[in-house]
């Protein structure tokens, strides 16, 4: 199950939805808004999504994780709207019989979400300027697709 959320992500109901007597492992990942990116002090950010395509693509990613790693179930929620430093931006939970495949699937899901879902992030910096992340390197298309300078929050 994947969905976008305009409000704070409540993780307990999501974990509850994964309860399964066959599961010996649940791996949860929380992506949090950090206070800096590429050397700039970030004070707030806004996520915007093309939700219909985003949900379809995310469900594909979850199905791929299920097929590739043999997990029992996975859920993911991604925030949209305005977030502050410390807020949870994305939550991924995976359950499986054993921990190995749950860790693998969790990593796969968050990595694919970051590169494939139509979600955009506008950061506001200390001083008041703002920019759409990954869209500013106007003369270098390669840089725009690079993940290298964007470690996870």
């Amino acid at each position: 199950m994947f969905k976008f959320a305009a409000e704070k992500i409540e993780i307990e109901p999501l974990k509850k939805s994964l309860e399964d007597d066959r599961a010996g492992a649940v791996v949860c990942f929380e992506g949090i808004v950090r206070n800096h990116n590429e050397g700039k002090a970030v004070v707030a950010l806004e996520y915007e999504a093309y939700e219909t395509l985003g949900v379809t693509e995310a469900e594909k990613i979850l199905a791929e994780a299920s097929t590739n790693f043999g997990i029992l179930n996975a859920v993911c929620v991604h925030r949209v709207g305005e977030l502050k430093v410390g807020d949870m931006a994305v939550f991924v939970a995976v359950c499986s019989a054993h921990r190995h495949e749950a860790y693998q699937a969790s990593r796969y899901i968050i990595d694919e979400i970051k590169t494939r879902l139509p979600i955009w992030k506008k950061e506001t910096y200390a001083g008041g300027s703002s920019s759409w992340v990954n869209c500013q390197h106007l003369n270098n298309a390669a840089a725009c697709h690079s993940e290298a300078s964007h470690g996870h929050k």
Binding site: Y50, R116, P118, K121, W132, N134, C135, H152
Partner: peptide, 10 residues
């Protein structure tokens, strides 16, 4: 039609 700029989710 939707043109999709470089994404930055997660």
């Amino acid at each position: 039609v939707v043109f999709i700029p470089p994404v930055a989710g997660g």
